[in-house]
Amino acid sequence: MDTNRSLQKFLDFDIFDTEEEQADLFFSQYDEQKIVHALSKCLLSYHRCSNEDLEDAWRLGRKFGNLSNNFSIDIEIVKLAAKENGPVRRVLYAFLSGFYDQADSNIGAVIDLGRNIIILLGSEGVSKEIVYGAIEAFALGYLNNLKLFKNNPLIDKKAKEMLAVFKVTASEAPTDNPAYQLLVK
């Protein structure tokens, strides 16, 4: 099996049953660009956005969050989500939520995600589920990494301003929605 197919197969199937140490070892054979490309392809294949797709994207995020090398994955997935227009964005934000559960965030990526949410809020016809999913990911990227943000006061100030805006949106979500649970509860 060629290396690209082997990587794709690992992301599609094997990673869910692989311990972190083995996953680290497996990914060490590949350069970052190939991994990001294969991961993006894998996540975009979850385009039906069923509950299972969202759950698997979230689990995949956690798997990548647990790796010793996180490959600046959040930077790439935030960029990818900004380029996508369809419902698959929910899948990408579910991935980021799982990722930020475990990994330190790149604070620049969290701010970029915040900027993208502001654009979503000002756009017509964007599903509320996509907006709430993005807010959930932003909240986890910020709240789980407060120390990193505090070391950068200007960025922290910006993040707090964004959080205040998103809290208003989250307050309109159903009370069992993760965005509501994280920011309003």
Partner: peptide, 25 residues
């Protein structure tokens, strides 16, 4: 509930996409 390699103690995690989201660390 997993038994890590080279360990005799089972370990629990909260990896359930359906039930473990939306909480801080």
């Amino acid at each position: 509930i997993k038994l890590p390699d080279k360990s005799n103690q089972w370990r629990i995690n909260d990896e359930s996409g359906r039930f473990s989201t939306s909480r801080s660390k």
